[in-house]
């Protein structure tokens, strides 16, 4: 299977004198999750709409898997699952019928349609609503159906516009788990979000947009190390309580570690200087200490620092 790819070439969208997206160039390929960040009005949704032919660019091109989205739409979107804005289905259709419609449009074989729809609905935990009319659903329930719709055709690329919108905390957690599971299935996920902790948890790379211009596109750790005062933070969860002495003596003295904060007796926040190589080395050292590391992840605070620094700089 060839690598999935999204390529944006000199993409610009203007509305009269207002430029929503300005000369955007971005190439994403491979199987990963890329977080698309930016403040309200930055141009994120406009970009995603141009990637799905919902709006036409003023200039430039967008390609998905090498096919031009605007001139070869059917080919470009054949293997793409999308969730743009807050879609609605025809209100008198049931969940099953609404998803059957999408399945039919996408050419999912009839023999598989029922199972795929039921699996997608189960994945978003809407099984008991599968034969109820979507017009009666709450915003959060509709969003779950929209997520199911984007997963239906088992796409190689997912374009998600703030997928957690309208969801309760459980729903947001389930979206994160779905995105993580898709990463293991070799998918390319391009996801816009305002929830930095969500992006920090699930995404490998980050592209930041403001006033229609791309500020940065790089791996999460490189972005945070570059802009967050060359300091990154990881949160470590342990299987068993850790002694304060070990924290102060041993962990603080590891190469690259700037400081260690004890959140509680099983959770630490380690600030370090450097990029992904240092992060990897610290993890190896912690494992060698046999302190029972069960989780090791970058925190949103580093990403938040980076975000606020970059966005403030463009005001």
């Amino acid at each position: 299977m060839t690598n999935p790819s999204i390529e944006i070439v000199s993409l610009t969208k203007s509305y009269g004198s207002f430029t929503a997206v300005s000369d955007l160039n971005l190439k994403i390929e491979g199987t990963k999750c890329v977080g698309f960040l930016g403040p309200n009005g930055a141009g994120k949704t406009t970009t995603l709409k141009m990637l799905t032919d919902l709006i036409r660019p003023s200039s430039g091109h967008a390609f998905i898997n090498g096919e031009n989205v605007h001139t070869q739409k059917r080919g470009a979107l054949a293997s793409v699952g999308t969730l743009i804005e807050t879609p609605e289905f025809y209100p008198a259709l049931t969940t099953r019928e609404a998803l059957y419609m999408i399945a039919d449009i996408r050419g999912i074989p009839q023999i598989e349609r029922k199972k795929r729809v039921e699996d997608a609905v189960a994945q978003v935990r809407m099984e008991e609503w599968i034969d109820k009319k979507v017009g009666k659903f709450s915003k959060g329930m509709k969003q779950r159906i929209n997520i199911a719709s984007s997963l239906l055709s088992d796409p190689t690329i997912l374009l998600l516009d703030e997928p957690s919108t309208g969801l309760d905390p459980r729903g947001m957690s389930e979206v994160r788990e779905i995105v993580k599971s898709l990463k293991t299935k070799r998918r390319l996920i391009f996801m816009s979000s305002h929830i930095l902790s969500e992006v920090a948890e699930v995404c490998d790379e980050v592209a930041m947009l403001d006033h229609g211009k791309l500020l940065v596109y790089d791996t999460l750790s490189n972005v945070t190390s570059r802009f967050s005062g060359d300091q990154n933070v990881v949160e470590v969860e342990l299987a068993r309580p850790i002694d304060t002495a070990i924290v102060g003596r041993t962990i603080t003295s590891l190469a690259g570690v700037v400081s260690v904060d004890r959140i509680d007796d099983r959770n630490l926040r380690i600030k370090f200087a450097g990029g992904s190589d240092i992060r990897e080395r610290i993890l190896s050292d912690l494992v060698r200490l046999d302190i029972g590391v069960v989780s090791y992840k970058p925190t949103a605070s580093a990403l938040e620092d980076t975000y606020l620094k970059l966005i403030t700089a463009t005001l």
Partner: peptide
């Protein structure tokens, strides 16, 4: 107006 276009049109359909 009802945003049903957002569910149908970002699919491989003219």
């Amino acid at each position: 107006q009802n945003r049903t276009g957002y569910s149908v049109l970002p699919n491989p359909i003219r």
